[in-house]
Design a protein around this nucleic acid. Structure first.
Lengths: 326, 326
DNA sequence: GTGAAAGCGCTAACAC
DNA sequence: GTGTTAGCGCTTTCAC
């Protein structure tokens, strides 16, 4: 069979306890013994069984993460950033996808809990229907909500101030002379969709009621653009709920021969890598994903260390990025 | 503490052995007892400790995956597809990122091995320098190489026929009248970069030697386009190593006022979701990621079941997608 | 079909 | 500082 800590201890001429201490870098082992153990481990090509360690120590050094859709570059970038933060602390990432379905999300969270993750990074796919599972998770391990959050749930959250972002966009468009705005966004099933819609309604004056709601896909962007093209008059500014929608809108407008920004200005949200590649490059609102991920892991670490127990809400003000489209 | 299988067994009035058998759905338990155990588990809200089960049974029902860059939508889509396939078999995905660095890749694979994953899905970031770690991994658990592979390593692989894809693109451009082609791709550090470059060199005739090599980023696409613009004469066709490069090329050309496809035709590879949104929409080669992921999991399952032991090489012919850019 | 008992490989008390 | 010992919670022989 494979070599165990007993073999290492025997070869080093110490007990398994000492071997364990030396291997896990604890202090309280004589330097000479520590070296003997490490040498023995190397010689025998010892590979620690972290499953056994996890069973005994009740910590798996694994963090669970559930995202609505990995293929969305915005979430993928977030996953990458979280993975990178955890990596620094020698932890692994157990990843699951909810496909924006609260029931799948619930199963996934349960599976992660069964696997005894130490902590969880969750992007709850529904403002309301994700509450139950969030509470269940938070009752068992430290949980941080990333980007999205559950209404009326008293848990920690890190994300951007979505309303402020949209306000900034609308102000910009108005300053550029836009008078007839329209919002193309997602049905407010998740908290970001809700906040962006709220922000638009509050800041867009008379245009505040002109709103087209679907989901956060490029297909919806294309579809919404078709509807706008079918109107008697085009708006002079299209505020999109995210970049993917905006990219869809842009492609449909280009196909119809509408000029951006001359005929109509278009804006997005998120600043995904493809926003700057659009023709024209997309004016948008940048989410600092590395910062969001770093804060999230920091909150989790504080909870794990017992340093902090109260729920934290960290809203980062996003950065407005002006490009040619708006 | 939390409720264990002993509590469930006690409440059901059976031994832990019977409880274990009933809970894991094994046959050889009287129907009546099975139901009593299941009812007890439900009443007590029993949550199995899969860490303990894994220690004893030596299977974690977890698959490890290492990708070069999660944020790349091509890889993200692959991750999503693999996750979906595993999900069907009640398995979880431990995900890691190599950042295209063989040393990081090695650490990540080691960490996954330490965590006793049952199998691994690897996208080796380097044709040569990933060999050592691939061999180490393959010696311990079933491993499948996805998309990329290691030169001269006798392990299973699932991906597309990259050469065939490029051949098809070049043929198309030549049929459209292109005579002065150029290839903008990545240095052949990974197997796909190599195969695409080879395919171009073999099929592009006299243009076969006109090649600009960098990496698979949009920044490189933009940079390469600048270099082409600085030439005395523009080529009439730009074959890009992937879509991200092509999107970068397209944006730089648009900024310079070059018309696509009138002045120059541009093609990509992968068919990421943003390819069809480009202006003009990008002609490219589609990789059937769902199919690739499904085949990969199937190969792994066959190895785990002991049904198959020989290395399998599955090359899927990719589909040519003609759009306006080429 | 069922139960008793023996570990899986490790860490954490506790004694020295 | 070090060793002995007792489990972590489960699955899996092996008897019956």
């Amino acid at each position: 069979m494979s070599v165990t800590i007993h073999d290492v201890a025997a070869r080093a001429g110490v007990s398994v306890a000492t071997a364990s201490r030396a291997l896990s870098g604890q202090r309280g082992v004589r330097q000479e013994n520590r070296e003997k153990v490490l040498a023995a481990a190397r010689d025998l090509r010892y590979e620690p069984n972290v499953v056994a360690a996890a069973l005994r120590s009740r910590t798996t050094h694994t963090t669970g993460m559930v995202v609505p859709k990995i293929a969305n570059p915005f979430f993928a970038t977030l996953v990458e950033a979280v993975e990178k933060e955890l990596q620094g602390g020698q932890r692994s990432l157990l990843l699951a996808n909810s496909h924006y379905d609260p029931e799948t999300e619930q199963q996934q969270v349960r599976a992660l809990l069964d696997r005894r993750v130490d902590a969880m990074v969750l992007i709850p796919c529904h403002r309301e229907r994700s509450r139950e599972v969030m509470e269940a998770a938070a009752a068992r391990v430290p949980v941080i909500q990333l980007d999205l959050r559950v209404d009326g749930f008293d848990g920690s959250w890190v994300g951007v101030d979505n309303e402020a972002g949209i306000l900034r966009v609308v102000r910009h468009l108005v300053e550029r002379g836009c008078r007839r705005l329209v919002f193309v966004g997602s049905e407010p099933t998740d908290s970001a969709a809700q906040a962006r819609l709220d922000g638009y309604r509050r800041s867009a004056g008379e245009s505040g009621s002109d709103v087209l709601l679907g989901d956060f896909s490029k297909e919806w962007g294309q579809c919404a653009a078709q509807r706008l093209l079918a109107r008697a008059a085009l708006p002079d500014g299209i505020v999109c709920g995210n970049d993917t929608i905006a990219l869809g809108v842009l492609s449909a407008l280009a196909e119809a021969g509408v000029r951006v920004p001359e005929d109509v200005r278009v804006t997005g949200f998120d600043d995904i890598p493809y926003a700057e590649l659009a023709q024209p490059p997309l004016t948008t609102v940048r989410q600092p994903q590395d910062q969001i991920a770093a804060e999230a892991v920091r909150v989790l670490d504080a909870r794990l260390a017992g340093t902090e127990s109260a729920a934290r809400r960290i809203a980062i003000t996003p950065e407005f990025v002006e490009r040619a489209s708006g």
